[in-house]
Nucleic acid binder design. Structure first.
Lengths: 187, 187
DNA sequence: ACCTGAACACCGTTCAAGT
DNA sequence: ACCTGAACACCGTTCAAGT
């Protein structure tokens, strides 16, 4: 005799994201998630094969959010302006979901890492806009330079690496301007 | 009646670093470290207040290594050449100790983070060399731009974010050249 | 002074048994 | 078909008892 489902994959991932942001990765336990969705820990394994898979699903959901935020930022019609806005949106996203952001490019065991296709999708806008300004044949290198700078800046900021003085907002604006110019054909 | 010390803080940190690189952060357990230094887990707490403190000590030791590697790279006398070499050394370090590198600027709980003074020291060379080429008053912003790019590139590479095609070495060389030029007064 | 065994609270995960 | 309690192996950490 079937028992009615008492939760869903969606509810589990949503609860997991909330717990992750509130308590950090160590706080994201199967017990805690089970509690949040009103079920016993073993029941989670009906929807998710293990904790690594849950973390992966959460990261992939965050990648979707990021991709949408970047898309919304690229609406100026002018590539340089779009690139600046994309970088700003990237940083804003990281500040809204700092813990989830840490899963996107952070140092994780192999089987915790999100599907590569997820970040490819989320960074697609960037590759497209960079393609409009970069030297022919250098589009991929140029996109990787911008992404690396943006991720590096944001992750170091979140890690507290910029707490030794100076105006961090100014440093971001400086880097944004210089890096975008540097990868553009007509610097 | 005193018992002779059977291990030391140094042995613990050294063993911890080896275990970290071999098995990753989840494999760095107090039990595993105790085994490696020939002692029972509770004895570790005589030298180290908890696992977070051990991770911090390991990260700080890695920061020392990094600082030395960067110092050794900056011996050209010509700032632009030094900057390129520093970035190359930075990447080489991350590849030699990928797990420890992940602790330096990675997303960690607050009480796991290395002392800010540690990375300040390790990145001191960079600030000094950047100071020789950057626009007056923009030295800190310029240094943060280079560091952000280098860390971003290296961490994304380690995270497997650059596995979708293209020549990663070429992308690194491209970014290195463009970013160094971008923060220099006379681009 | 340092080391240990025993113990506690807490994990992730499996599985037989329930409905 | 989904849920649960019980169980297992494994953590970090504390502490009284040993030398």
């Amino acid at each position: 005799m079937p028992t009615p489902a008492r939760t869903s994959l969606d509810a589990i991932v949503t609860a997991g994201r909330a717990i992750l942001e509130a308590e950090g990765l160590p706080g994201l336990t199967m017990h805690r998630v089970a509690d949040a969705v009103g079920v016993r820990p073993p029941s989670l394994y009906k929807r998710v094969s293990n904790r690594a898979a849950l973390v992966r699903l959460i990261a992939e959901a965050a990648f979707d959010d990021l991709g949408q935020a970047l898309e919304r930022a690229a609406t100026h019609g002018e590539p340089q302006a779009d690139l600046h806005a994309i970088a700003v949106a990237f940083r804003a996203f990281a500040r809204t979901q700092p813990q989830a952001y840490g899963l996107l490019f952070g140092p994780l065991p192999d089987d915790w890492r999100p599907d590569p296709a997820a970040y490819r999708r989320s960074l697609d806008v960037l590759l497209r806009v960079v393609g409009e300004v970069a030297t022919l044949g250098r589009e991929l290198e140029a996109a990787r330079t911008v992404t690396a700078w943006a991720h590096g800046f944001v992750s170091m900021e979140l890690a507290g690496a910029f707490r030794l003085g100076g105006d961090v907002d100014r440093a971001f604006a400086f880097g944004n301007e210089r890096v975008v110019a540097a990868i553009s054909e007509r610097g």
